[in-house]
Structure formats: C-alpha cells, structure tokens
Nucleic acid binder design. Structure first.
Lengths: 174, 174
DNA sequence: GTATAACGCTACGAAGCCGTAGCGACGATT
DNA sequence: AATCGTCGCTACGGCTTCGTAGCGTTATAC
C-alpha cells in the first residue's frame, strides 16, 4: 500500500497519486485505503516517511575524505531523473501546502543527518571555522551538487568531486 | 491568454493548467486556445517564455559589490513561496518530460545571464581564478541561496548576504 | 462457536478534463 | 458586396477521480 504510493510518487509524479491508482497498483480496495488514510496528505506523508533511506556515514578521520565519500554517495541520487523530479515535486508541494511541510522537513533531515555528523566531528578536530554554523556550512556543501543538478543536469557528470571538495574546504576552514 | 496561463502556473501550480481553466480565466474560448496551442506543452512553454524577467546587472567595478547587489536582487524571489513552488514544478516537469527541457533551460539562462556578465568582468579584472569555469562558479554563487530556500526556507531570512559573499569570494579568488 | 474487526467488491452521483464538432458573428481584404 | 480568416458559444462522449454506501467474506479473540 505505502509501497505502491511511493512507487507512483517516484514513477509518475505526485499528481498521479490518487486513491484509485494506489488501489489499482497495490491490489488493495479503495475503501480500505480510505479507512487508513482519510486524507491524501496523510497517505503521502506515510509513504515518504516509510521510504527515506539514510546514506552511509563515512569516518576517515579527516574532513576532506569524509566530504568526498559523502558527495560520491549522494551523487547518484542527483543523476536519477525520476528521483530528482520526485524530490522537486515534494518540495513544491510543501511550499504550497503547509500540511506537507513536516513531510519535507523529515525527508531533508534524513538526508542531511550524516552530513551533520561529519560536520561535528570535523569541528571537534579543529578543521572547521568555529564561528561557522552548520546551517551555513550545508549551503556550501550540498549547494554545488544541487545547483548543478537543477540548472545544468546534463553537465552533472562533469562535476569533479575532488576539486569541488577543495573549494568547499576553502569556505569551511578556519 | 498566456498571461492567464502564467497566472495559473504561479497561483495554483502546473497541474492546474488545463485548457478549461485557462479558458475560464482568460475569457478566451477553449477552442481558440486549441487552435493556437494544439498541445499543453506548447502552451506552457509560450507562457513561461513570455514571463521571464531578467534581473538588473550591477556594475560597481569590483566583484564583491556586484555579488552583493546580485544576491540582494534575487533574494526576494526565493522568499516567495508561490514563486519557489512554481520554479520547482517547472524543473520537475522538465525532469520528467524531455519536451519541456528547453523551457527550463531558457528560464535558467534568463536568470543566470546577469551573473555571467558579472563573472566575465571580474575575470578580466583578475579577481577570479583564471582556471575556474563559470559553470563551476555558479554552483557556489547561487548554491547557498538555493540550498537555503529548499532545505530551510524558514531560515532564509537568517542568511547574511555580506558574510555569504565573503565565503563565495574564498572560492572564486585566485 | 460466536462476536468483533478488518478487508474486498461493486456501484453510485457528482465533478472535472479532454478533444472535437457544428454553427453563427465579426472584421479585414479585395 | 463577396470572401476569407478568426473568434465565440454550446454541446457532446469518453474518461478519470472523488468520497460513500451496502453487503458479503475472512480471521482473530475469547
């Protein structure tokens, strides 16, 4: 049921998530879905909550390698057109409907979690400007990948992780 | 007609753009819309093309001030929930439908144009690492704003433009 | 064995959208 | 004055979704 919802969300987009369609693909009766999720938003939230996988947390003992591993790990997510479309649709839906803001927030937190760990460890080692808040740091760590994937998705392959990490470090270091 | 389409796109989202709805709001007969735009995609492309405004191009003679002015100029666009939602929906649509990729590309080019001018002038003045491609530079210039608006839209106000420019310059300078 | 709860199935009226057809009105061209 | 092109209006059949109702089936608990 939630699996079918997540599948539709991924393949056909958020507008294709209807009670009828979920019933069709999941093999569950439409009435049953209504009994569990009286509103479409609840169904969406539950489906997204149940399908958020947290990426691995690298621990190499130094910031540079951790960042490289992290960017490498999440790069495939940006290369996937359907996945990118789904994320964009979810964020757009959250921007339009306050009810879905928590959904988006949880989704982001799951994706950002590992980065937070990396960041804290590096800060303890003195590799990061002590005045730099982690929110501001994320802007520059995820920024390049996101911008690249949004504005120039076809040039995403050209992005050199090593060089990008160098540039990120310019911003983060004390 | 195109104005009505752009308006729907902005207010209610891309899913709300239907022939019936455009006819209703524009006062134009549905058949007439079909005569001009046989497919919905053509209508979308025309509407977006006709409503892309290019921001001002600052020219202060130095990169720092130009960047500051530019970021200040585009910040309000990110603060607008509907506008952000619309952009996200357009990008999502482009990711799903190849026919709409040009639409997105044109939209991006209009928004990025001024940045390109700023970038070239700064490079001529020697304020930018000569090995740095402009595509890579954009990742770090627009990145912070975009990431902030996507992941933490409620903390967008906290973003200090001056400090952000400082950090961007760390990446761009030779 | 029986009560309770959950599920499946069918069907419904209302609403919206699609794409097209038919017909009349208007204005410009020539 | 006649012609051509464009537009408006109405209406249609087909399709999908919504949210609910009614009723039968299954399984678990006690």
């Amino acid at each position: 049921m939630l699996r079918a919802t997540a599948d539709i969300l991924y393949r056909d987009g958020i507008h294709a998530v209807t009670y009828d369609e979920v019933a069709r693909r999941s093999g569950v009766a439409k009435t049953t879905i209504y009994r569990h999720f009286p509103s479409r938003n609840q169904l969406l939230v539950a489906a997204v909550d149940g399908s958020t996988a947290t990426p691995l947390i690298p621990d190499n003992g130094n910031l540079r390698d951790d960042l490289r591993d992290f960017l490498r790990a999440i790069l495939p997510m940006f290369l996937n057109d359907d996945l990118r479309a789904m994320s964009l649709e979810l964020m757009a839906a959250a921007a339009r409907d306050p009810e879905l803001q928590d959904l988006h927030r949880a989704n982001v937190r799951a994706r950002i979690g590992p980065l937070s760990t990396i960041f804290k460890r590096a800060k303890d080692r003195g590799e990061i400007d002590p005045d730099l808040a982690y929110v501001d740091a994320f802007d520059f760590i995820e920024g390049p990948l996101i911008v690249r994937s949004l504005l120039y998705p076809d040039k995403l392959d050209d992005l050199d992780i090593e060089i990008t990490v160098d540039r990120i470090l310019r911003v983060l270091s004390p």
